[in-house]
Structures are given as C-alpha cells and as structure tokens.
Design a protein around this nucleic acid. Structure first.
Lengths: 120, 120
DNA sequence: ATTTAACTTGGTAATTTTTGACAAATATAA
DNA sequence: TTATATTTGTCAAAAATTACCAAGTTAAAT
C-alpha cells in the first residue's frame, strides 16, 4: 500500500455498519423508535446496532433492507464485512485471509455443495 | 473470471480446513486419538473438525498449531477463511464483501480501536 | 470370516452466547 | 422546563456451542 493510501486510512473515518444504518435512517426521516418497530426491535436494540454493540440476525437484516428500501445484497455486504473484519482483528489474523476466503467462497458456489457436509 | 479459471475451480478440489488438518496430522504420523489428546479433545471431536462438522475455538487452534508444528498465522488464516466463505455462501452475499472486509480490517488496525466500542 | 484399530456419527447434558424487553440515565431540542 | 430521542445496563429466555460418551461403520491384516 502506498503511503498516501495508508495515511488516508488512518485519517478518514471508515463508515461502520452502524453508521451506515443510522445514515440511511436519518435520510428517511425516521427515528430509532420508528425504524426499530419495523424490524421487531425496541429503540434500545436499534441504538446498540447503530453503535456497534451488536444484536441482529439475518431476518432482521432483511426487514431492515425493506424498511430502508435498500438493496439486500448491499446490506449483507455491509453487515458481513464488518463481522469479518472484527474477527480478523480479534484473532490477529493476517489480512491475506480475505483473498483465500474469496477463493473458497467462489469454490463453494461453483460446486453444488452438499448441505449435509457443510451443515448449513 | 476466465473460463479456464472457472473450469479449474470446478474440477480441482479445494483443500478445506479439515483436509488441511488431516493432511498435516497424517504427515506427522498421528492418529486422531493421539492428536485429539494434545488439544484437549476426544477422537470424535477431531473427526468432526476434519470433516467440517465444526467444533473448535481459538485456544484449540493454538494448541493445534503447536501440536502440528505449524505457523499460528497460517492456521488462523485457514480457519477463518473457511468460516468467512461459509458465511458468505450461507447469506448469499456478494463476494465483494471480502474486499470491503479487508479495507475495514486494515482500518481497524490503523486506528487504535477502542475495545469498549467494538466490544472485543 | 474374524479380529483389531481407526474413524464417523448421533445423542445429550452442560456451558456459553445471543437475544429481546424493560427501565433508568443521558442527551437534545423546542 | 418539558418533551422527545437516544444510550446504556440488567435480566431472563432462547439459541448455539461444546465436550463427552457410546454405538456404528470402515478398512486392513491375517
């Protein structure tokens, strides 16, 4: 990575998943209570989501996409990338993990993976 | 992706985390019972790991690296990449997630992330 | 075919983690 | 202030993970 890029990374705030949700919610003129209701959560729960204190499973993700009228693939990307990055950080894992993960994901998609084998 | 690459992906078996562990175990001339004992597992547990039926947390990962005399970073990479790929597949998430995840991971590393904020 | 060792699989109980709901505390705005 | 919005902590229920055990299968050898 170039020095410029590295500097930018250290200075520019990266939008977290919570920031992303909050931004879209505010753009839509909703408060936490209103949006939370649409996804079966109370305002406290949504607050925690927006502040990265977690909570949220896939069905909520889909409801959120619908409520905010955003692309499901996009919100999944935002959500999972955050989870992955946190895991990588937590485990102190080299970032090369992501390249390998992408290869594996493509491989899973290319073969018709047996659900039993992978238990999902 | 080129047709050649795609063909290769569909034909070549990609080594899973379980395959990786099994290969190293066999290379060292250990059976499941022996290796399992070194990481505080029974043979059934190790069998499940090798067959992708999961089990395994970080401390076992470190023990495994030690028992198999392999680089800790390497085993973490193998382990996490598999988890990430499975999640991506399960969520039907676009593979662009990995590029974003890598950016986020680099960002987390570049700022001195507050543990409280991210709760890890 | 029988024996033996290695491996796989399923069940289950114990533990840990995640979740949603509530309430209190804090902040923001009118 | 008063009202509204957000944050935070706690708690119990629900879900997921884990270790452990035992039964079942496979494979190799003789």
């Amino acid at each position: 990575m170039s020095k410029i890029t590295k500097l930018n990374l250290t200075r520019l705030k990266m939008e977290s998943f919570g920031d992303y949700i909050r931004r879209l919610r505010v753009e839509k003129g909703l408060n936490q209570t209103e949006l939370a209701a649409k996804i079966g959560l109370d305002s406290g729960g949504l607050s925690k989501v927006e502040n990265g204190k977690k909570e949220l499973k896939e069905n909520k993700l889909l409801l959120l996409a619908k409520a905010l009228k955003i692309d499901v693939a996009d919100i999944k990307k935002q959500y999972l990338s955050e989870k992955f990055a946190e895991d990588c950080f937590k485990y102190k894992c080299p970032e090369a993990v992501f390249q390998l993960a992408e290869e594996k994901a493509k491989y899973y998609k290319s073969v018709n993976i047996k659900q039993s084998k992978l238990k999902f």
